[in-house]
Design a protein around this nucleic acid. Structure first.
Lengths: 127, 127
DNA sequence: CTTGACTTGTTATTACATAACATGAGAAGA
DNA sequence: TCTTCTCATGTTATGTAATAACAAGTCAAG
């Protein structure tokens, strides 16, 4: 865990939002780190590899992992209003997925499960 | 259903692979349609909106819908070797997802479930 | 002290996606 | 028939996301 990587994780944790790589990069640059895309991408890649962050495909964004270390099957609930990301664990979902794939002879190595919708807060207010 | 849209769908069906928008665009151009990105993106957007195709976030790509018309909860099995996409339906997965989200007060509007792995064919041969 | 693995940084380029505007065809209504 | 509206298609230009390829510094093992 190096300074850039630590700072990147801190940024993700502080905002608690789905963040684009370039958004992260801007913050890193403010703190004196490099201003080039690979700086952010490499740090984020590292965090993802080590289970400290996740990549959200739908938004082309990243979010800090809320359950690092634990063996978990993350499911993301992304609010389309405020971009906040709730991460929940639903082993049953994963199991069903693996079973269904297995029936077709397909070997699942990695899975992405993302739900887009409204969080409780935004659902209360007017849309 | 217009010529561009029809041709776009045909292309997706013919290849039966996850295709990037620019890949689709090249084929459309060969057939005399426009060469600019919006041509492909609009046609693909239309197909997705009308349930004739799906967008695969992990690959930034698109694939024809194999069960158009049916009310379905698609789950994608993407082979990382040959890029072929198998689309299966796993209502149980969706149900579990909706339930888990509901417990947290989250309203699911759309969900993306994609599995990356090896298809039976590629799993047989050497990786 | 030197080799090798690794991290960070750079420049440059590629890939993906959309904004904004112009044109033309076809339907709906005066 | 003519006008108007809608919508599909096409364009130019730009914005956003991601990676390739290389240079330089650190640090531990031998």
């Amino acid at each position: 865990m190096t300074p850039v990587r630590r700072r990147t994780l801190e940024i993700l944790l502080e905002t608690h939002r789905a963040m684009g790589a370039y958004e992260v990069l801007d913050r890193l640059a403010e703190d004196g780190f490099g201003r080039q895309p690979p700086v952010a991408y490499r740090a984020l890649e590292f965090l993802v590899e080590h289970g400290l962050a996740h990549r959200l495909q739908r938004l082309n964004a990243f979010a800090a992992c809320l359950h690092p270390g634990e063996e978990h099957a993350p499911v993301f609930l992304i609010c389309r209003k405020c971009d906040k990301v709730a991460e929940t664990s639903a082993p049953a979902v994963r199991n069903t997925l693996h079973d269904a794939a297995g029936e077709m002879g397909f070997t699942v190595e990695r899975a992405t499960i993302e739900a887009l919708g409204l969080c409780p807060v935004c659902a209360e207010g007017r849309e």
